[in-house]
Simulated scan of single mutants.
Amino acid sequence: MKRWTLTLFGCNRKGLTPSVKILGATIGQHADYRDGTVYVGSDRLGAILGISESKVFERRKALKGSGWMVDTGRTKGRAKVYKLTIPDCECGNC
């Protein structure tokens, strides 16, 4: 997941603010290194980063909308299971 995180940090796509990238890096720390899946609840992410769950939702939406996370349709407990992906990007840094 190190490659995913480093690529995310280098991306200049509009909407990927530093706070979105920090959330992404935190999510990446919880990912399964074998297949890139991750399930970590918004409450946990909010507690780790010291932000509200609504901010977590907002920033995770930016990651999903720009192709960095894909909803697998599965859940683990109350948390959705996502697959971390590196999208095709025209920013020149990805």
Score class of each variant (00 low, 15 high):
residue 50 G to Q: 08
residue 75 T to Y: 02
residue 71 D to Y: 01
residue 71 D to A: 03
residue 74 R to P: 09
residue 79 A to V: 00
residue 9 F to E: 15
residue 45 L to I: 05
residue 93 N to C: 08
residue 79 A to G: 10
residue 39 Y to N: 11
residue 36 G to S: 04
residue 89 C to V: 05
residue 38 V to W: 00
residue 80 K to E: 08
residue 87 P to R: 09
residue 36 G to N: 05
residue 1 M to E: 07
residue 5 T to V: 15
residue 42 S to K: 11
residue 14 K to M: 10
residue 94 C to N: 10
residue 34 R to V: 10
residue 88 D to N: 14
residue 51 I to Y: 07
residue 57 F to H: 13
residue 29 Q to V: 00
residue 4 W to F: 14
residue 6 L to W: 11
residue 20 V to F: 08
residue 88 D to S: 15
residue 45 L to E: 01
residue 69 M to Q: 02
residue 64 K to N: 11
residue 48 I to F: 05
residue 94 C to Y: 10
residue 41 G to E: 06
residue 56 V to N: 06
residue 37 T to F: 00
residue 76 K to S: 15
residue 57 F to A: 13
residue 19 S to K: 13
residue 17 T to P: 05
residue 24 G to A: 11
residue 56 V to K: 05
residue 45 L to R: 02
residue 33 Y to N: 10
residue 73 G to L: 03
residue 80 K to A: 09
residue 89 C to G: 12
residue 6 L to S: 14
residue 52 S to F: 03
residue 17 T to V: 04
residue 11 C to P: 11
residue 26 T to R: 04
residue 66 S to N: 15
residue 1 M to A: 13
residue 61 K to C: 06
residue 86 I to D: 07
residue 28 G to D: 07
residue 6 L to I: 10
residue 83 K to F: 00
residue 62 A to Y: 04
residue 93 N to S: 12
residue 41 G to D: 12
residue 11 C to D: 07
residue 25 A to W: 06
residue 46 G to K: 09
residue 81 V to H: 06
residue 70 V to A: 14
residue 14 K to E: 14
residue 67 G to T: 07
residue 36 G to H: 01
residue 78 R to W: 03
residue 34 R to S: 14
residue 59 R to E: 08
residue 40 V to N: 01
residue 38 V to H: 00
residue 61 K to R: 15
residue 52 S to L: 09
residue 39 Y to R: 06
residue 22 I to P: 02
residue 1 M to G: 11
residue 13 R to W: 04
residue 6 L to V: 09
residue 49 L to S: 03
residue 34 R to W: 05
residue 11 C to Q: 09
residue 16 L to Y: 09
residue 43 D to R: 14
residue 5 T to L: 03
residue 31 A to K: 01
residue 92 G to E: 08
residue 36 G to W: 00
residue 50 G to D: 09
residue 48 I to H: 06
residue 5 T to F: 01
residue 41 G to Q: 04
residue 21 K to C: 06
residue 57 F to M: 09
residue 25 A to H: 08
residue 66 S to D: 12
residue 72 T to W: 05
residue 11 C to M: 10
residue 14 K to G: 11
residue 66 S to R: 14
residue 78 R to K: 13
residue 65 G to A: 12
residue 90 E to N: 14
residue 8 L to N: 04
residue 4 W to D: 03
residue 92 G to L: 05
residue 93 N to F: 12
residue 30 H to P: 00
residue 55 K to S: 15
residue 60 R to H: 04
residue 67 G to W: 07
residue 90 E to D: 15
residue 47 A to I: 02
residue 13 R to Y: 09
residue 75 T to P: 10
residue 76 K to H: 12
residue 87 P to K: 10
residue 35 D to W: 04
residue 68 W to A: 02
residue 64 K to P: 00
residue 56 V to R: 07
residue 64 K to Y: 06
residue 31 A to G: 02
residue 75 T to V: 13
residue 71 D to G: 00
residue 72 T to S: 10
residue 27 I to K: 01
residue 54 S to C: 05
residue 35 D to A: 03
residue 27 I to V: 14
residue 12 N to P: 02
residue 47 A to D: 15
residue 60 R to S: 10
residue 25 A to Q: 10
residue 85 T to M: 12
residue 23 L to I: 09
residue 28 G to V: 02
residue 25 A to K: 11
residue 14 K to Q: 14
residue 1 M to H: 06
residue 55 K to T: 15
